[in-house]
Design a protein around this nucleic acid. Structure first.
Length: 303
RNA sequence: GGUGGGGUAGCUCAGCUGGUAGAGCAACGGACUGAAAAUCCGUGUGUCGGCGGUUCAAUCCCGUCCCUCACCA
């Protein structure tokens, strides 16, 4: 990229149900530009209710990218997103000075802003082998294996987290190198400026918003939508709040009312994890979602 | 109004023969490199309904008042 004018990526993030969609549309309209989604569940076109994607009206107001661009049968990952989103952004910056990124998936935003290390993609056979090993021999077998392949990573990894252990083993085995050596944490330079905005508000208000939105999803037919995918529930994109709880209900494990309560609880927890993630990212400035004037002022001050 | 049960953490409830209390869930805090709305780790947050009394010591025993549930009027 070689731009004469400065290109600005306005990043809008924050916990779920805080109001990212509405704000991003307002901003994109103001700057007469487009929106890049950074929401790892709104990619899936089949998930129309439970992931709270922008409405048809909203999509008609502002051009969105990476909304409903994948199927739940696709296998996708952050690295692909980095490549595709970066390419999309690079293209759009030839006609826009501002672009808006909106979404709450911290790892994906991180990959977009700073890149992610060049690691091998998961190999399905190898992953199955490791899953089986974990199921049959327990987590200690993964630990012992990792200690052999990569003692340095073994020292720092969360030894209780089977997915981290399996992923590290995957990388070691398929690359023939140590995971700890491939993880450079190098921040790739980007040829645009980022204006990073995180939204948050009083926790009780956020919880109320979560409860309200969940009820709205139920009214829109979330149960029926979940039922469509019951047979496909093993797919990763369906390991998602709002669907998994209904799957438990369909299996007779919990009651209907419990399913709805659990959707709310798990959404609250998800929101908390998002807040924890972004709190330590110093590049983000925090705003109340209603403070549009303050946010606009902040963006313009970055010129 | 009478009789009986109950009032302990945000909720549901344990708590022995008196030694200022603990489970589940919720909540809160944290980690995070191709599964990330995923996955994992950590933390009891309390006028034991109020006021008196007995006792070296009361969530526990006694009195009284308040609240609540059930049954009887």
């Amino acid at each position: 990229m070689n731009f004469n004018e400065r290109k600005n990526l306005i990043v809008i993030t924050g916990p779920t149900a805080i109001g990212k969609t509405a704000l991003s549309i307002q901003l994109a309209s103001h700057f007469n530009t487009e929106i890049i989604s950074a929401d790892s569940r709104q990619f899936y076109k089949e998930l129309k209710i439970g992931t709270a994607p922008p409405s048809a009206e909203e999509l008609a107001t502002v051009k969105h990218h990476f909304i409903g661009n994948l199927s739940i049968n696709d296998s996708y990952n952050v690295s692909k997103y980095e490549t595709e989103a970066l390419a999309k952004i690079t293209g759009l910056f030839t006609i826009h000075d501002y672009l808006v990124v909106a979404g709450g998936s911290g790892l994906f935003i991180d990959a977009l802003l700073h890149g992610i290390d060049d690691l091998p993609d998961p190999d399905e056979e190898l992953r199955q082998f490791l899953k089986l090993k974990y199921a049959n021999e327990g987590i200690s077998s993964l630990r012992m294996m990792l200690k052999e392949y990569d003692p340095e990573y073994y020292e720092v990894v969360d030894l209780a987290n089977s997915k981290r252990l399996m992923r590290a083993l995957e990388v070691c085995i398929s690359s023939g190198k140590k995971y700890s050596e491939l993880r450079t944490n190098f921040k790739k330079p980007r040829e645009f400026s980022s204006i990073c905005i995180a939204l948050n508000r009083d926790r009780s208000e956020l919880n109320q918003s979560i409860s309200f939105r969940t009820d709205a999803m139920i009214k829109k037919g979330l149960e029926a939508e979940a039922r469509l995918f019951f047979q496909l529930r093993h797919l990763n994109p369906l390991n998602t709040v709002g669907y998994r709880e209904f799957f438990d209900y369909f299996e007779g494990l919990i009651s209907y009312d419990d399913a709805i309560e659990k959707i709310k609880t798990n959404t609250r927890r998800y929101a908390k994890r998002q807040i924890t993630w972004f709190k330590k990212k110093e590049e983000f400035s925090w705003f109340h979602p209603d403070d549009y004037a303050g946010i606009l002022n902040f963006i313009n001050s970055k010129k």
